[in-house]
């Protein structure tokens, strides 16, 4: 199932923060969102997950396919690791939780109350939830926060397996997940009129390092001069997709 996002315009607090976002995410692909804080990554993800209706534009192909992971994990401290996971498995009507526990190295902790876990362990439990949803499109907001190196590797492995199984992922993160070259794709650079750069493939990495880009911050469609991306002039937001 291909996720098609076209001409998305999204507001936050009554002010438009994103406009003209378009991309297509095919099975087996991952799109990595990067950019400074406040640029609208979370807003975009929430909108694609269906929590926030966009002002304009459409998201298609994601109906009943999207599994969303927010900043917080939604764990109940009184329930054990296995109980937390089983709850979500039953909400999504899916099978066993063993594979998910295994993938994030949580099997030994299965009977520990979630309240007694460390921050990193909680995060791993939160991420393992994506595996029990059985859904094809993962939409994840900063999934690697408070994870150590080994856990990031576990996460990257999980994403790789997911992509290999014809799943797709939309991830906002600051960390290089080291996804295989096979996953990356190449496509021409497409700056949009607010100085956003939507980069694909390898060119992403170099642009992020250089910190420069087309600085053609124009005006807003219907709140002229609100230019909500202060960093646009300095080539700020980079949408990287692989």
């Amino acid at each position: 199932m291909t996720l098609n996002v076209s001409n998305l315009r999204i507001a936050r607090g009554g002010i438009p923060v994103l406009d003209g976002i378009s991309f297509a995410l095919k099975p087996g692909q991952a799109l990595i969102l990067r950019g400074p804080n406040g640029i609208g990554k979370t807003t975009l993800l929430r909108s694609i997950a269906g929590l926030q209706p966009p002002l304009a534009g459409t998201v298609t192909g994601g109906e009943d396919q999207i599994a969303y992971a927010a900043h917080s994990d939604g764990l109940k401290p009184a329930l054990t690791v296995a109980e937390n996971l089983s709850f979500w498995a039953s909400v999504f009507g899916t099978r066993s939780i063993e594979a998910a526990l295994e993938a994030y190295n949580l099997t030994a902790l299965r009977n520990r109350p979630a309240g007694a876990l460390s921050a990193g362990q909680k995060r791993r439990l939160g991420l393992s939830r994506m595996l029990v949803t059985g859904r094809a499109i993962w939409v994840m907001d900063e999934p690697t926060v408070s994870l150590d190196q080994a856990s990031v590797a576990l996460f990257a492995t999980a994403v790789r397996h997911h992509l290999a199984a014809q799943g797709s992922a939309l991830i906002a993160t600051h960390i290089d997940l080291g996804l295989d070259a096979a996953v990356w794709m190449s496509a021409p650079i497409r700056p949009n009129r607010w100085g956003w750069v939507i980069l694909t493939g390898r060119s992403c990495e170099s642009a992020l390092g250089a910190g420069s880009g087309p600085g053609s911050a124009g005006g807003w469609g219907f709140w002229p001069g609100t230019g909500v991306f202060p960093d646009c002039h300095r080539g700020g937001a980079v949408f990287c997709w692989a």
């Binding site: 997950a49 999207i66 599994a67 927010a70 917080s72 939604g74 764990l75 009507g93």
Partner: peptide
Amino acid sequence: LDWEDGSLDLLATAPL
């Protein structure tokens, strides 16, 4: 409580 720990966001995107 569910609002604070993020469960509501997740429930809202669940099939239920």
